[in-house]
Every structure is written in structure tokens, then in C-alpha cells.
Nucleic acid binder design. Structure first.
Length: 480
RNA sequence: GGUCCUAUCGACUAAUGGUUAGGUCACCACCCUUUCACGGUGGUAAUAGGGGUUCGAAUCCCCUUAGGAUCACCA
């Protein structure tokens, strides 16, 4: 089978993390099976036009390493890949459904529909288009319908759902799903502005583009019967469906903006590595059954199987993502990290920083940070003299007599020319032994003077990187 | 409310009829140690409840409960 799958987002202006996961699973499925991955922009709602939406979408996808075989940008044999550019296609299919009795004309206004729903709500029944009482082909009759159309009355085309038919499909993830026709609404197919709704356009385009598998979010399950009815009405072969579990907020509701960031670009801005982010997202709802968490992109492609996708929703909790980001960070080459940090430097007033020095600082911090930019923030004292000294830390480690105790050691440091961490350590060790002290008795005062902070990398390593001149200056400044 | 989907540690998940129910994050303790980390060792922690089927059920079936999704001329 020649597998073809698509990612069909509406251009909302940014890529939702749920959208990224859907795109990713489609991509992994396609690549795992040697199939094609297609991008189609679903912009049939012209009231929701957003400037640059498509560009932003593709930018985020590209950041994640997801590329398409066919798309609006690169084209393909099944274009155009933007639904608004396919506008001319849809109307004839709408008419075709009218002619074969699968759909009908309706003339109800928004107010009439609202009134209907209100009546139904009051009566305690599910809101659903009642074609036996509303203004449509059935209640008006053929002649009146034709007359209204000829007069230019606004109309839409609705799907005629057979009330007594059972509509079923076998979901690749969930198995057998079934619903009875009377519970399915007579969905509008063609709007009065002449544009198709999602349901019509989506089915037509998936068919025309030869899509074999539809992999999408669970929120689409309720409308899948409508789509199946459409495939049947057209006499088209139905693609296979796979409905992905939802991504959830902490309170288990569908992941939304209200409870935190959901735009991929926000996570890019926070400094997550794409490898970590993709790895993390991939494992939210799918697992290759290995006792392992870290997978590179190729491994994801190699092991991805739709059958192993979970059925239940997954809470989007970034705690593990942070850990994963740190894991990836540790393995990155220093030179690569330096090249990322270099342009960031201009946002801080750190003056000139050589590549060599930056690399040494990164090496000092890479074991203990989550984001690369932490080097510049937590590690600020590697680039400028400490402006503040943690009060608690100072109180604890700088007492009466500490200055007197430290002064001889500092003077000894002045005589050290080979400013290496080994020598600094040895000199300090000799000093504490001679004075019946412990190493940590002097290390904390040193740390306070040098960094102003209670946490940081190894003291002598830190001093070695800073250099003799800088360290002595800091000592002298602190001692006054 | 109708319909549909779902249910293993706090979170992500493994175990597709036989395990002391495993791993990872987080948390706790200890080791390492120079603070914080990293690393190492160990620990707390789960099959929603009830019925079946079976020699045997987290796993299959039913009911209950709980959560969620959806019910637009949005996608």
C-alpha cells in the first residue's frame, strides 16, 4: 500500500503543541512506512483569516525537524494545497450530493436556528437540526425550493443523515466505534457564502489527494460518522482512521492556553532544544515499550507504530521535559553551545567574551543547568563582578574573624603563578592543614567573595576559569 | 442533558490470561562531595468499585462510578 497521510491545520497564527504532536505522529507513521507526508491548509473560514499564519505554522514545524513531501510551498501533484485556492472544486460536489439524494437545501436564518435550539434546550432534548419542521426542501417542497433559489435567497446545503442506519468504523487505535444515525446532526456542507465547511472540504480533499490514513485528535471522533457518510454518498473508498488521545491540562481538561503555554514558539523562546522537545512530545501518548526515555529522531521513526499509541489522554507536564532538556544539553558539544550563546551575549552588558572563555564557562555549568541560557543568568558572575552577595550565605560563612583567617590564604594566592585548579586546591589544602581547618571552612568564604552565591560549580575550577587577576581583584574588593 | 471516548504510582508509561505489577520524571534517604548539580544505591507510591468468564484477570465481558470530548453557516 502506498501510504499517504496529511497534516491539515487551520491557520490560527501559531502551532499548538497538540498540533505538533499530531503532525509528528503523521510524519513518523509516513516515514516509518515509506509513505508521503502532506501539508494542507484548511482555511475555509474566511472570517478567521490570520496574517502570516501559514508561515508561522511551517516555521514551527521546520524547527521541530518535520518536513513535507507535498505542501503549499513545495507543491506536488495534488495541488493546490490551500483550501481557499480550491474553492471552485467544492460546489459541484455539493450539487452532486443534492442530485443523488444525500443532501438537501435549507433556508433557515441564524435567528431561526437559534430559536430552534432554544426550544429543544427547554424541552430537554439534544440540540439537533430538525428537518421535519425547519425551512428546507422537505417542508417547502420542490417547486418552492427552486423558486427561492431562483430568487436569490440565501441557502446552505445540509447532509441528509439516514436516521435508522448504524454508522461504524474501526479506529486503528480504539477499535470498533459505532453510532446510530438519529444521533448525528444534519451537518451543513456548503455554507450560504458558497464556502464548504470543514467536513465537506476535508473529505473531498482527502479523497482527491489520495490520503490513506487519517491520524487526528480524539476531538474529531464525534464528527467521523459524518465523514464516513460523505465517503459513502460519493461512492468513495473510506480511508483508515486513527484518533489520537488528547493532550491535557493538569486538571485533565483539553490542553488550552488558559493554563499555560501551548504555542510551540513559546517553548522555542524558553530555550528548549528541538531534540528534547520532540522526544518529549513523541512520548506523550505513544511508547515503544523500551525501558528508555531518550530517542533521537531516527529512532522515533524506526520504532513508531500506530498500534502502540495509547487510548487515554496525557497530561502535558513539563517537569520531565526540563529533565530531558538537561540530558540533551549535557551531551552537546561545547563549541555548538558556544555558537548558540554567542549572539545572546549582546543582551547582557558583559563586555568582550572570547570563544575560548565562553566554552570554559559552559563546561563549568553544563552539568547543572536545564537551559543553555542559564549559563548567562545563573552564571552571571563569570562575566561580571558579583553585584550582590546572598545575605543568608554571607551570614552563615562570613563571621567575626573570617577576614583575619582568610587574609593569609589570599596573600598566598598572590604568589601562585600557575593558576590551575589543581594548584589552587593543593595550596588551599596545605593552608587548611597547617591551620587545623577543614577545606569547607575556607571554600565557602572563597565562594562568597568570588561569586556572591551559595551555589555554583567547583570552587577551584571556577577560580581557574576566572583567572588570577580577576580573582585577586574580587578578594581585595571584598576585603576592602 | 444526548451521543461518543477513556480509566495502572502525583505525572509519563511497561506488562497484549501466569511478574514479588517494571521503568522514567518528581519526591525522600544514604553514598560521593566543596555549595548546587551530575553520578551511584535504596525508598515512599498504582491496577477506580462491584459482579462475572477462567485453574488463574491490570489484561476478556457486564454494571456502577469518575473524568473527558463533542453537540456552530469554527476547524
Amino acid at each position: 500500500m502506498n501510504i499517504r497521510v496529511r497534516f491539515a491545520p487551520s491557520p490560527t497564527g501559531f502551532l499548538h503543541v497538540g498540533g505538533l504532536r499530531t503532525a509528528l505522529y503523521n510524519y513518523l507513521f509516513a516515514k516509518h512506512n515509506g509513505g508521503k507526508f502532506i501539508l494542507r491548509i484548511e482555511d475555509t473560514d474566511r472570517t478567521r483569516f490570520v496574517e502570516n499564519a501559514q508561515e508561522n505554522l511551517i516555521k514551527s514545524l521546520r524547527w521541530a525537524g518535520i518536513e513535507f513531501d507535498e505542501s503549499p510551498e513545495i507543491g506536488g501533484d495534488f495541488g493546490p494545497y490551500i483550501q481557499s485556492e480550491r474553492f471552485h472544486l467544492y460546489k459541484k460536489y455539493g450539487t452532486e450530493l443534492i442530485e443523488n439524494g444525500s443532501a438537501y437545501y435549507a433556508f433557515d436564518t441564524a435567528e431561526e436556528l437559534d430559536a430552534m435550539r432554544e426550544r429543544q434546550q427547554k424541552a430537554g432534548i439534544a440540540p439537533k437540526y430538525d428537518r421535519s419542521v425547519m425551512r428546507n426542501e422537505f417542508t417547502l417542497g420542490k417547486d418552492e425550493t427552486q423558486k427561492l433559489i431562483n430568487d436569490g435567497t440565501a441557502y446552505c446545503i445540509r447532509l441528509k443523515v439516514p436516521h435508522n442506519d448504524e454508522i461504524t468504523f474501526t479506529d486503528l487505535i480504539r477499535g470498533y466505534v459505532s453510532v446510530i444515525g438519529r444521533d448525528v446532526d444534519d451537518q451543513i456542507l456548503l455554507k450560504s457564502d458558497g464556502f464548504p465547511t470543514y467536513h465537506l472540504a476535508n473529505v473531498i480533499d482527502d479523497h482527491l489527494m489520495g490520503i490513506t490514513h487519517i491520524i487526528r485528535g480524539e476531538e474529531w471522533i464525534p464528527s467521523t460518522p459524518k465523514h464516513i457518510l460523505l465517503y459513502k454518498a460519493f461512492g468513495w473508498e473510506c480511508p483508515l482512521f486513527a484518533h489520537l488521545p488528547l493532550l491535557l491540562n493538569r486538571d485533565k481538561t483539553k490542553l488550552s492556553k488558559r493554563q499555560g503555554s501551548v504555542a510551540v514558539e513559546d517553548f522555542v523562546a524558553k530555550g528548549y532544544f528541538k531534540e528534547a522537545f520532540v522526544n518529549f512530545i513523541a512520548l506523550l501518548g505513544w511508547n515503544p515499550s523500551a525501558d528508555r526515555e531518550i530517542f533521537d529522531f531516527q529512532e522515533l521513526i524506526n520504532t513508531f507504530k500506530l498500534e502502540k499509541v495509547n487510548k487515554s489522554g496525557a497530561v502535558f507536564d513539563t517537569q520531565k521535559l526540563d529533565w530531558m532538556n538537561g540530558q540533551y544539553l549535557k551531551k552537546l558539544p561545547i563549541s555548538y553551545m558556544a555558537s548558540i550563546l554567542k549572539p545572546e551575549l549582546s543582551n547582557f552588558n558583559y563586555g568582550d567574551v572570547s570563544d575560548d572563555y565562553l566554552g570554559k564557562v559552559i563546561d563549568l555549568f553544563k552539568e547543572r543547568i536545564t537551559f543553555l541560557k542559564d549559563v548567562l543568568t545563573f552564571g552571571n558572575y563569570m562575566f561580571e563582578k558579583p553585584k550582590e552577595f546572598e545575605a543568608d550565605y554571607k551570614e552563615k560563612h562570613w563571621k567575626e574573624g573570617t577576614a583575619t583567617m582568610m587574609q593569609p590564604l589570599i596573600d598566598e594566592f598572590r604568589n601562585i603563578n600557575d593558576w590551575s585548579h589543581n594548584l589552587l586546591h593543593d595550596a588551599t589544602k596545605q593552608f587548611v592543614d597547617a591551620n587545623k581547618l577543614k577545606l569547607k571552612d575556607v571554600i565557602h568564604p572563597l565562594r562568597l567573595m568570588i561569586t556572591g552565591k551559595s551555589v555554583g560549580a567547583g570552587m577551584f575550577e571556577t577560580m581557574a576559569v576566572l583567572g588570577k587577576k580577576e580573582c585577586i581583584e574580587r578578594f581585595d574588593e571584598f576585603m576592602g
